[in-house]
């Protein structure tokens, strides 16, 4: 592909990716405008925008909107960073050491199929309904996802590249640092995107546990008072956070693992 062809293809991609949500929005507005759905169930986009502006100006339940957003972001980022760091470390160790893999196999495989939301009652029992439960729930989900991905990534190193490194004098640590780790990076970057999606899901769920701030709290509270437009505005904010972080991670991934898919 020539450079100008590639640029045109990229432009077309961005155009379609922008038009598709606009089309959905237009269809939605049409349905609402024709009165095909009750405004309690499906309010028109304009009403949601109005509610959003209201929250931005006056806050929600006595707390500024940005405090809700910040509370959610703080929880998710602390849990995500810590969970990803530990998960990647454990996954890499499991990939390199049969002993560590054996130690962690049963505990992690028993935990993995349990939906994190199923753990909520236990977490409330152990850690109460405060910040600890919320953060730990997200932390645990991210950790499990990243552990699996990092461990699978370790296996991506080709036998030839491992042998090449050894025959050029690399010791065990150097083989790991210069070959195994870079080979695992594409899978780790993919895992980071999956884990971010999951982290945001668990975030909303965990904020249903209680507390008086956070986007999850806002959504739950608004829905129990049938303030559907506020529910939608909250959901849209979380969606936008998800979209932005995913695009950010995808962009970072393309820079960090620039060699992926180019062989």
């Amino acid at each position: 592909m020539t450079r100008s062809e590639a640029r045109r293809a990229r432009l077309r991609y961005v155009l379609v990716a922008t038009l598709s949500p606009l089309a959905i929005l237009a269809l939605w507005a049409l349905v609402a405008w024709r009165g095909l759905a009750s405004p309690i169930i499906l309010p028109p986009p304009s009403a949601i925008w109005t509610s959003f502006l209201d929250m931005a100006a006056n806050g929600y339940s006595g707390v500024p909107l940005w405090t809700h957003v910040a509370a959610s972001l703080a929880r998710v980022s602390v849990a995500y960073v810590a969970g990803a760091a530990l998960g990647v470390a454990l996954g890499l160790l499991r990939g390199r050491s049969a002993l560590i893999d054996a130690v962690l196999l049963a505990p992690s495989e028993l935990l993995r199929p349990i939906p994190p939301l199923g753990l909520i009652p236990l977490f409330i029992l152990w850690f109460g309904v405060g910040e600890t439960s919320k953060v730990l729930l997200i932390f645990l989900s991210v950790l499990l996802i990243m552990m699996v991905n990092a461990q699978a990534g370790v296996r991506a190193a080709s036998l030839d590249s491992l042998r090449a490194a050894q025959s050029m004098g690399a010791n065990r640590w150097q083989v790991f640092r210069f070959v195994v780790l870079p080979s695992a990076l594409p899978q780790i970057m993919t895992g980071l995107r999956v884990a971010m999606g999951t982290a945001l899901t668990i975030l909303v769920a965990s904020e249903l546990l209680g507390g008086d701030r956070g986007l999850g709290f806002l959504i739950l509270d608004a829905s129990s008072f049938f303030r559907t437009t506020y529910v939608f505005a909250g959901v849209a904010l979380i969606g936008l956070i998800g979209l932005a972080t995913d695009r950010g991670l995808a962009w970072a991934g393309r820079r960090i693992v620039h060699w992926e898919g180019r062989r």
Binding site: D160, S161, A164, M168, W259
Partner: peptide, 14 residues
């Protein structure tokens, strides 16, 4: 003893 592999086995990240 250096090895030259059929598929080169270069380190793509370097």
């Amino acid at each position: 003893r250096g090895v030259v592999f059929q598929a080169a086995a270069l380190f793509d990240w370097m």
